[in-house]
C-alpha cells in the first residue's frame, strides 16, 4: 500500500499532465523554469510533432471510432504522455523526461485498458520526428510522417494494429493553436488531426477482427494548463456525418460555473473557435461505474452552429482503472446532427 503511494507520489511529480485524475493537485502552481505558452503561436511541422522538453507536459492522444465487418462499433485509445521533472532534455537514466502510455480497446460489452511507464534517454520511450516515431515499450505510432502511421499497442489480453492515413492539414485549436483553459488565462498549445482514415486489426482473446473507421489525434503541450480550482473535465471529439468535426470541452470549477471551449471544423479543415459559454454540455444520465456515478449521456448545444445533440456512451463501463483512473470511451451522436466520437471525463472521484 505504501509502496503504491510512493509510486503515485513519484508519478504525480513526474507526470503532472495526468494529475487531473487526482483533482489537479498543485497544477496551477509552480512551473518554475518551464516555458509557458504564449498567444499567436506559429507551429513548424514536422518539428512541432516532436517533444518540447522545456514544457512540463505534453501528449500524443489518439482515439478512433471503428466498425467491424458485422457493423459492431469499437473504439480504441492510444495515448503517450510526456512529463518533465525539469525543463531540459537528457540522455541516459538521469533524464528528467518521464513517459506514460495508456491504451484501451472498447467494445459494446467490454473495456480493456492498460498502461506503461518508463523514462526517456535509454530508448524505452520517446518521440522522434523524421521519420516519425512515438513509442513506449512495444507500443508505437510510427511511419514516414505523422500523416501516415502505423499504430500498435498491446496488453495482456488485447492488442491492435492499425494504419492511419490522411491528406488533410493539421487543425489548430483555440486561437491559432493557443487554447485557453480558464478565465485566469491558463493555456496550452493545441492542434489536432481529426481526419485520419483507419484500417487494421483488433486482437482479442476470442480472435482477430478486421476494422475500418476514423481516428482523431490531439497534440497538446503546456506547463500549467489548469487553474487550481478546476476539478475535472469533460472532453468531446465528434465526427459528424456531415463531414464536420466538433472539439468541445467543459472544465468543471469548484468555485464557479464550468469553463467551456469549442472548435467547429469544416470538412476542409477550417476551424472556428468558440469562447467560454458558446458551448453548453448538460449531463442527462449517469451510470454506476467503478463505485461512482459518471455521466454517460449528455446534451450538447452549440447554438451558433445549430447543434443540439445527445451524446451517449457506446459502453458506459469504459473506466480506465489505471494508476490515474478516468473514463474514456466511444460515443454515438444523435439529434440535430448524427455521428460518432469519443468522450473523456476526469475528476469523477
Amino acid at each position: 500500500m505504501n509502496a503504491r503511494i510512493t509510486r503515485r507520489a513519484l508519478m504525480l511529480t513526474a507526470l503532472p499532465g495526468l494529475a487531473h485524475a487526482q483533482g489537479f493537485a498543485g497544477l496551477g502552481t509552480a512551473s518554475r523554469g518551464f516555458a509557458e505558452p504564449a498567444p499567436d503561436p506559429t507551429f513548424r511541422f514536422p518539428a512541432d510533432h516532436g517533444p518540447h522538453p522545456n514544457f512540463r507536459i505534453e501528449w500524443w492522444y489518439v482515439t478512433a471510432n471503428l466498425t467491424g465487418p458485422d457493423g459492431t462499433d469499437y473504439g480504441i485509445q492510444w495515448t503517450l504522455f510526456r512529463s518533465a521533472l525539469a525543463p531540459r532534455d537528457g540522455s541516459g537514466w538521469s533524464t528528467p523526461q518521464a513517459w506514460l502510455g495508456h491504451a484501451a480497446l472498447t467494445t459494446p460489452d467490454t473495456h480493456r485498458a492498460t498502461e506503461r511507464l518508463g523514462r526517456g534517454g535509454i530508448g524505452q520511450a520517446g518521440v522522434t520526428v523524421d521519420p516519425f516515431e512515438a513509442w513506449i515499450d512495444d507500443w508505437q505510432m510510427a511511419g514516414p510522417s505523422l500523416t501516415d502511421v502505423r499504430l500498435t499497442a498491446a496488453g495482456e489480453d488485447f492488442a491492435y494494429d492499425l494504419s492511419l492515413r490522411t491528406d488533410m492539414p493539421f487543425v489548430p485549436q483555440g486561437v491559432g493553436g493557443y487554447s485557453v483553459k480558464s478565465a485566469e488565462g491558463q493555456a496550452s498549445y493545441y492542434y489536432s488531426q481529426p481526419f485520419y482514415a483507419v484500417e487494421g486489426t483488433l486482437i482479442l482473446p476470442t480472435g482477430e477482427i478486421p476494422v475500418t473507421g476514423r481516428a482523431w489525434l490531439d497534440r497538446e503541450w503546456s506547463s500549467s494548463p489548469l487553474a487550481e480550482t478546476q476539478t475535472g473535465w469533460d472532453w468531446f471529439s465528434l465526427h459528424l456525418s456531415t463531414g464536420e468535426k466538433l472539439m468541445g470541452f467543459r472544465l468543471r470549477d469548484r468555485d464557479g460555473p464550468p469553463f467551456t471551449s469549442a472548435t467547429w471544423i469544416l470538412p476542409d479543415g477550417t476551424p472556428s473557435p468558440y469562447e467560454d459559454g458558446a458551448l453548453t454540455a448538460e449531463p442527462l444520465e449517469t451510470s454506476r461505474v467503478a463505485d461512482r456515478d459518471v455521466p454517460t449521456r449528455w446534451r450538447l448545444r452549440l447554438p451558433a452552429r445549430g447543434l443540439d445533440v445527445e451524446v451517449a456512451a457506446v459502453n458506459p463501463n469504459a473506466w480506465m482503472d489505471l494508476l490515474y483512473a478516468y473514463w474514456e470511451g466511444p460515443v454515438r451522436v444523435s439529434g440535430s446532427h448524427d455521428g460518432m466520437g469519443y468522450l473523456e471525463m476526469t475528476g469523477y472521484e
Partner: peptide, 25 residues
C-alpha cells in the same frame, strides 16, 4: 527502476524517505 518495478516491490514509504524526484537523476 521505480518506473517499471511493481509498486509493491519498492521500499516502503516513510514520508521523507520515499522515492521522489531526487531519487532519479
Amino acid at each position: 527502476d521505480p518506473f517499471t518495478l511493481p509498486p509493491d516491490d519498492l521500499p516502503q514509504d516513510t514520508g521523507a524517505g520515499s522515492i521522489g524526484p531526487d531519487f532519479i537523476g
